[in-house]
């Protein structure tokens, strides 16, 4: 209560708590303004990272919903229906890719699954690789492997030849 001795403010504790805080500042002695910690100031760099992380967050959810349908449908056809894995072979693949519908299905599944998985692994690398160099090179390896796999898979779907000998 020592602070109240120098002012004329009331010294009894009110319903809002101790009177000390009331007595410290008044109209003539306003409390100092503390700047919000994340406020953009003149010192904030103009070029920021934008909202890339928010966009990847949204992509994970949107692609996830589509992948539930595409991947579970794929598993049903390849591993569950019509004898399970027994019937899978070159002739079975040729039969399915004769239809543009399944070509588009597989192409969309390839791209969405690879991007969804690559972004997931990017998050995992960012979480656990603590050294800057390690994190950078692991992500470069991830991106290289992702680009290679997506392009290879796309090429295979578009250039598939059922009469190859």
């Amino acid at each position: 209560m020592s602070t109240t001795e120098t002012t004329e403010s009331k010294t009894t504790d009110g319903p809002d708590g101790p009177a000390d805080s009331v007595a410290l500042y008044d109209v003539d002695h306003p409390a100092p303004v503390i700047e919000p910690p994340r406020k953009r100031t003149a010192k904030t760099p103009k070029a920021s990272r934008g909202n890339f992380e928010m966009q990847t967050w949204l992509f994970m959810r949107l692609s996830g919903i589509v992948l539930v349908v595409l991947v579970l449908g794929h598993l049903l056809i390849q591993l569950v229906l019509d004898g399970g894995v027994s019937k899978v072979g070159f002739a079975f693949v040729a039969g399915r890719w004769a239809s543009p519908f399944w070509q588009v299905w597989d192409l969309l599944m390839l791209w969405l699954a690879m991007l969804h998985g690559a972004n997931g692994l990017r998050t995992v690398i960012n979480d656990y690789a603590e050294r800057d160099n390690t994190r950078f090179w692991l992500k470069m390896l991830l991106y290289a492997a992702t680009v290679f796999t997506v392009l290879l898979g796309t090429l295979v779907i578009f250039t598939f030849d059922p009469n190859i000998r």
């Binding site: 796999t149 898979g153 190859i164």
Partner: peptide, 8 residues
């Protein structure tokens, strides 16, 4: 994806 690429 690699094993499927063997159809080519």
């Amino acid at each position: 994806v690699l094993d499927t690429a063997l159809v080519r």
